[in-house]
Design a protein around this nucleic acid. Sequence first.
DNA 1: GACAGAACTAGAACGTGTTCCTATGATGGA
DNA 2: TCCATCATAGGAACACGTTCTAGTTCTGTC
Lengths: 205, 205
Amino acid sequence: MSTTNSLAVEDLGSTAQRERRKRILDATFELASDGGFDAVQMRAVADKAEVALGTLYRYFPSKIHLLVSALAREFDRNEALIRQMGDIPGDTAAERVIFVLKRTTRGLQGDPKLTEALTRAFMFADSSVAAEIHTVGMSLTTMLTHAMHSGQAGERAEPTDEDVAVARVIGDVWLSALMAWVTGRSSAAETGAHLETAVGMILRD
Amino acid sequence: MSTTNSLAVEDLGSTAQRERRKRILDATFELASDGGFDAVQMRAVADKAEVALGTLYRYFPSKIHLLVSALAREFDRNEALIRQMGDIPGDTAAERVIFVLKRTTRGLQGDPKLTEALTRAFMFADSSVAAEIHTVGMSLTTMLTHAMHSGQAGERAEPTDEDVAVARVIGDVWLSALMAWVTGRSSAAETGAHLETAVGMILRD
DNA sequence: GACAGAACTAGAACGTGTTCCTATGATGGA
DNA sequence: TCCATCATAGGAACACGTTCTAGTTCTGTC
């Protein structure tokens, strides 16, 4: 286990450690939700999580690792939520994909500062955060391929390479749209419209 | 002219000022090219440009503004280059778009550290950099709509809303692909392949 | 229970982005 | 030419991410 990676839940032996990790991520969410990226100050996170600064850095080797890990947890939860709601409404793949994207986007837009913090960290991440970023990418791809096939024959089959390629392109567009929204370059409505247009282009049935 | 914006060339009265601005951007390129984002240190830029730190901040209110302005200049030059080479090779819009994207990408990949610096700054930018980001977005959109229509009837007409929407989606994918490459999550070859796939999906003739 | 090693705390210290201050030089109008 | 104003130089000062050190507590093993 190299020191350049965040400590994942599986890496942590004791209950106390898992609780520390949770307290840290909770504190991160709270601070981010209040004041965005800039308010997530490492000393403040450590204080709020009741953990020493050095310990915080033991669990997450940088602020970016911390925030991207927080994003990964958020995505995991979102994916679980969507998965447990069963079949996704919509007759075509495009409709279903737009449904989950809009739902996810709406969830994020409900907490703009938090979203700003998580998104900017994700965008700023360099190669040392590759592992955490990969986790996020997988969640997104899984969610999208699941939406594409939900309720269809062969739903349980592995997604094809083509499915994955489509999901990646849609994920790219979604991230860019999210970034445009976060940086105030487009409104929520424009973001939604842009997403619909793009998915319509890519997923013509 | 608000202090939250970089000083554009047009804002500068005297020749000495235009030269200062140029020296600053040149120094930025040089440092970025050598050591990437981290090597572009404001004190180092000021030294190399033979300008006081305070002056640097007068011209560019933050490191991010500085780097995004550098990116804008680079894009302008790239667009001019492509525009002056006349008709773009390729029989279909997709082929022509792929041509300019690959050409631009190759240019960037030829100087990885520089690209890392510029891309990460762009990705990290917040709303205070909206103006500079918009400049970059316009260059990209213009380049793409130009490629879509190059050599076609009605080449000189204004791009339609649909053209712009398509260009924006392609621009989104391109940025994400560039980011994946910059952060070492995908190779140059994969980046190229991904772009081709995506453009193929979006621009089916 | 005693010990070894890992994990944790508290806080100092360092680097770099950013701000601020004072003195000096350039410019344009009376 | 002289003055007012603004731009620049030079450098101190501050904030926050990150690293490091010394001492303390926890955990597992004999």
